[in-house]
């Protein structure tokens, strides 16, 4: 089993574990939003889990690295923290911060990361860029809030994992990217109202059961 040194703490994990998972399992927190252990090929799309590895020129996303013996890792150097904070601020610049009226208030992953990184939820130096409309009610059982969504893709992954295919997808591109449930036939074929794995996995409360709001 590979042994590695993370922040001067020696840890031993199973072969084939991702570095991020190894750290999380051993009580070393690295901010992350889009990673799930069940992913074969983590997308590293949230750009939050950067660490420094000795021998690597630049910081690297820990979810895409498999542990190796004698790896020396640092999770809280200045440059790593800067990357964490910048990525986080960019995410918040497209986030409608309205915690008081949000059903995941106090359970939200963004709040947790903000506290951990000591970054305010209202970005000071970045322009806010919100999508229209604020809510997408196309799905018969789910409401989707594009301005809460961090586009981590966990909902798509978990739906596909459970059902073989996903009724959710990324649609459009760039700043316009949203999660979409286009296609009414697909939704009825999966019996969404009994499943809701996507609602449970969402780290920020962007997906919510319609009835839960009333």
């Amino acid at each position: 089993m590979p042994k590695l040194l993370v922040d001067n703490k020696e840890i031993e994990v199973k072969e084939g574990t991702t570095l991020l998972q190894a750290c999380l399992d051993n009580g070393i927190y690295i901010p992350n939003l889009c990673y799930l252990e069940s992913m074969d090929d983590p997308s590293a799309s949230c750009r939050m889990c950067f660490v420094e590895i000795e021998g690597e020129e630049k910081p690297i996303t820990s979810c895409t690295v498999t542990v190796k013996d004698d790896m020396v890792v640092k999770t809280d150097t200045l440059s790593v923290r800067r990357l964490h904070r910048t990525a986080f601020r960019l995410l918040l610049s497209v986030h409608h911060v309205d915690c008081k009226n949000c059903h995941v208030n106090k359970k939200c992953e963004l709040q947790r990361i903000a506290k951990y990184l000591e970054v305010g939820l209202k970005p000071k130096h970045l322009e806010q860029h919100l999508k229209e409309p604020d809510i997408d009610q196309d799905h018969p059982f789910l409401d989707y809030y594009p301005n809460r969504c961090v586009l981590c893709g966990k909902c798509i992954h978990i739906c596909r994992k459970k059902h073989g295919q996903s009724v959710l997808t990324f649609a459009k591109r760039g700043f316009d990217t949203v999660i979409s449930s286009y296609g009414k036939n697909d939704v009825s074929s999966l019996a969404c109202e009994k499943c809701v794995v996507c609602v449970d996995i969402c780290p920020v409360g962007a997906l919510i059961l319609k009835e839960a709001q009333e």
Binding site: Q165, S166, V167, L168, T169, F170, A171, K172, R173, S180, S181, Y182, G183, N185, D186
Partner: peptide, 22 residues
């Protein structure tokens, strides 16, 4: 047509939509 394509290829309509909008 998106519906036709989804049926023909045996994938969900939403996947077709996702690719086409990209």
């Amino acid at each position: 047509t998106l519906k036709m394509v989804a049926e023909h290829l045996g994938i969900f309509e939403c996947e077709v939509y996702g690719v086409a909008t990209f």
